[in-house]
Design a binder for these strands. Structure first.
Length: 743
DNA sequence: AAAAAAC
């Protein structure tokens, strides 16, 4: 069918839709308005304008008993205010309309002046107008109807909507804020007062960095941190690193043999090193010095090898190639060495405050307002080192508070040596935070921005899929901290709009992933454009964080970091996890049905699918079954992505079907169930996906579906992830499915 | 092979 045919069909459908009066009433004065049923529990009570706008209106679908009550009233509001229906629905629209829909997207606004809201036009490149759609028509047809209807309302709103507000808002806020406690001029004097009273006041802090460490209770690492020659995570050798993205695989046996040349004793070490060694300080200290010549290589533990080996063993028989060397297969799960790290013990952190760690009063207060009243272990572990100017690698499991671990000290640090830099028009940013997905960048900014603002610093988001105007405008006005994704950052750099030469603190969140093929090169270029030294002559800092930080970052570390300290939290193993892992072995043809039963429960659920098309199809299937569901993947334009995620966050849908775009970093409160409709690619993907639940110590369940033929694959993944889970046969209607769904 | 990340 030619494009114009689709358009015609859409318009026809559109007319039908309107004839039916689907779009709703905005208030009780309008026909069709229904107040929300108060007897219905809501997961979230926030119903501000933006949320309503973001609300999904499923008008075209038969009202289902289980969502009717919540939808009834609000749905209509949304329609009026928001302009889109089902997430997917908008897709066609966005593409066709060149992304118009997006300017209204409240979701990002969040009062962020610099938030890039204005739609540019064709929107996300990804769904480029002509981008091939990945979904079959049948799915899409109905969706488009919705869009259209929705769009129309968008228009009505548009004029009054923030198109103007927004532009005003930025400056306005600045003004507002200035007089408040953020005013720099005020701050200087006040700070001294405040701090003076405190135990760790600023003046002390600088010197304290070194001296204090020993004194601090929680600071177990002090002893090592200094003399840690090998801490220089530098990759064993260029090779290791180079294997970067595609190379990780080079770690398979064949390569290992070769490597033996560098390090004869490595082989034996594999077994010795491992468990006992990791947290054994004495051991480490000793080990460290016995090889002065190869500090660099040593930085990575090779303790994981044995596991890989056993995985290899599994593989051979499976392929009936026992006699042949295991072939290199990209799909195989390869586990790299963990980085050797200082382990901070959670118990040692009790009673420690952010102020104790060296975080100033304004920031501490802001953290408290955000709910971070006292530091989590990973924060206590890394903050002092970041403040002392070191390069830091941090590994904390999913949901353990890594964002604040780098965000708070980063801001503190900028404020310290940025003293005197009053808000200057067009000043170049001094800090950069990179994340692998736009959603994650947005989320990080939501955490970092308030912290920055509390001391008068500004952040801006630089990521793709949204118009350039606002981002460029923010840069022209001048910002202090950039939070973004590699593509757009690089883009703006190359266009001469973004000057990174004054960036003295760079953070890579999900650092190992940032070393994947496709990310590594842009990241290298970006880091290369940052400053090497601060105006004070200190070395510019690089901070790398991830729940699965391993030797994949080796090349980056060797190229850009200097004697980094490496931190992790002791005892963060699966045994201490709050996540219950299950694997259901299902018949391929029954999989969709089992999935539907699994997501029918009341709790918030994230379903991971391997492809965008499957994610989309599942979301449609669930909705057709009366389950409130939406999708998140790269085929959606950014406004829809943001909105759909918001639908889950706000509780308007219970189920989000996503690709791995949502695997890392995304925080949604109270996700009780993660379902993997397709097994993850590797153990890291497993850990990150499952980490969407069980956050901050809460409980969660992860259910992975595998067809019979893929059992061995998932076993290998579980083994590498160090997770124990039984494989259980399951079919639609089985008790186990119902039991898991009920959680 | 897919997904993500600029247009």
């Amino acid at each position: 069918m030619a494009p114009y045919d689709k358009g015609a069909r859409q318009r026809a459908d559109d007319r039908v839709r309107h004839a039916n009066g689907t779009p709703a009433a905005r208030s009780s004065k309008h026909r069709g308005y229904r107040a929300a049923d108060p007897s219905q529990p809501r997961q979230k009570q926030r119903w501000d304008a933006e949320e309503r706008r973001g609300r999904s209106a499923q008008g075209e679908r038969p009202a289902r008993p289980n969502w009717e009550p919540r939808d009834g009233g609000q749905r209509r509001d949304d329609r009026g205010g928001r302009g889109y229906d089902r997430d997917r629905g908008g897709r066609g629209f966005d593409r066709d309309r060149g992304g118009r829909g997006f300017d209204r997207d409240a979701p990002y606004s969040h009062g962020r002046p610099d938030a890039p809201q204005a739609p540019r036009r064709a929107g996300t490149g990804s769904q480029g107008p002509s981008a091939p759609r990945r979904f079959d028509r049948d799915d899409r047809a109905p969706r488009r109807d919705d869009d259209r209807g929705a769009r129309r309302f968008d228009r009505d709103d548009r004029p009054q909507r923030r198109s103007f507000d927004r532009d005003d808002r930025a400056p306005r806020r600045d003004d507002d804020r200035a007089p408040r406690r953020f005013d720099r001029d005020d701050r200087a004097p006040r700070r001294d007062d405040d701090r003076g009273a405190r135990r760790f006041d600023r003046d002390d802090r600088a010197p304290r960095r070194d001296d204090d460490r020993g004194a601090r209770r929680f600071d177990r690492d002090a002893p090592y941190s200094h003399g840690r020659p090998d801490a220089s995570q530098a990759p064993r050798r260029a090779g290791t690193g180079s294997q970067g993205p595609s190379a990780p695989r080079r770690f398979d046996r064949d390569d290992r043999g070769a490597r033996r040349f560098d390090r004869d004793e490595r082989a034996p070490r594999r077994d010795d090193d491992r468990a006992p060694r990791r947290f054994d300080r004495d051991d480490r200290g000793a080990r460290r010095f016995d090889r002065d010549d190869r500090p660099q290589r040593r930085s990575f533990d090779r303790d994981d090898r044995p596991q890989r080996r056993s995985f290899d063993d599994d593989r051979a028989p499976r392929r009936d190639r026992e006699d042949a060397r295991p072939a290199y297969v990209p799909a195989d799960d390869v586990k790299l060495e963990k980085l050797q790290a200082e382990a901070t013990v959670a118990a040692d952190v009790e009673g420690v405050t952010f102020a104790d760690l060296g975080i100033g009063g304004n920031i501490s207060r802001t953290l408290a307002e955000m709910g971070a009243t006292s530091p989590f272990p990973i924060q206590a572990a890394t903050i002092p080192d970041v403040l002392s100017g070191k390069d830091v690698l941090g590994r904390g499991r999913t949901g353990s508070g890594k964002t604040i671990a780098f965000g708070a000290p980063l801001v503190e640090k900028l404020m310290e040596h940025g003293g005197g830099t009053k808000r200057r028009m067009g000043r170049a940013p001094r800090a950069l935070i990179l994340a692998p997905t736009r959603e994650l960048a947005l989320q990080i900014d939501r955490t970092v921005q308030p912290i920055a603002r509390s001391v008068g610093l500004f952040t801006t988001q630089i990521y793709g899929g949204v118009p350039y105007g606002r981002q460029e405008g923010a840069l022209e006005r001048g910002v202090d901290i950039i939070v973004g994704t590699p593509g757009r950052v690089q883009d703006l750099m190359n266009k001469g709009k973004l000057d990174l030469s004054e960036v003295v603190v760079s953070v890579l969140d999900e650092a190992d992933h940032m070393c994947d093929l496709g990310f590594l090169e842009p990241v290298r270029e970006i880091l290369s454009a940052t400053a090497e030294v601060t105006p004070q002559g200190d070395r510019a800092q690089k901070l790398l964080f991830s729940a699965t930080l391993d030797a994949q970052v080796a090349s980056l570390v060797s190229e850009f970091l200097h004697e980094p300290s490496v931190h992790e939290v002791a005892g963060e193993d699966q045994a201490s996890s709050t996540i219950d892992h299950r694997v259901l072995v299902v018949e391929q043809r029954q999989k969709d049905q089992v999935l539907e039963e699994l997501v029918a429960g009341d709790g918030k659920t994230i379903v991971f699918a391997r492809t965008r098309a499957y994610a989309e199809r599942l979301a449609d299937q669930f909705e057709d079954a009366g389950i409130r569901a939406t999708s998140l993947h790269g085929d959606l334009n950014q406004s829809r992505r943001t909105r759909n995620l918001q639908l889950l966050t706000s509780g308007r849908v219970n189920v989000l079907v996503a690709t791995d775009v949502a695997a890392r970093g995304i925080h949604v409160d109270d996700v009780s169930l993660v379902v993997q409709a397709d097994a993850p690619d590797d153990y890291k993907a497993y850990l990150h996906r499952s980490g969407r639940t069980g956050r901050a110590g809460k409980e969660g369940t992860v259910v992975t579906l595998v067809p019979r033929g893929r059992r061995r694959k998932i076993e290998g993944i579980l083994e590498n992830a160090e997770i124990e889970a039984e494989l259980v046969d399951a079919a639609p209607g089985d008790g186990i499915v119902a039991e898991l769904a009920a959680r």
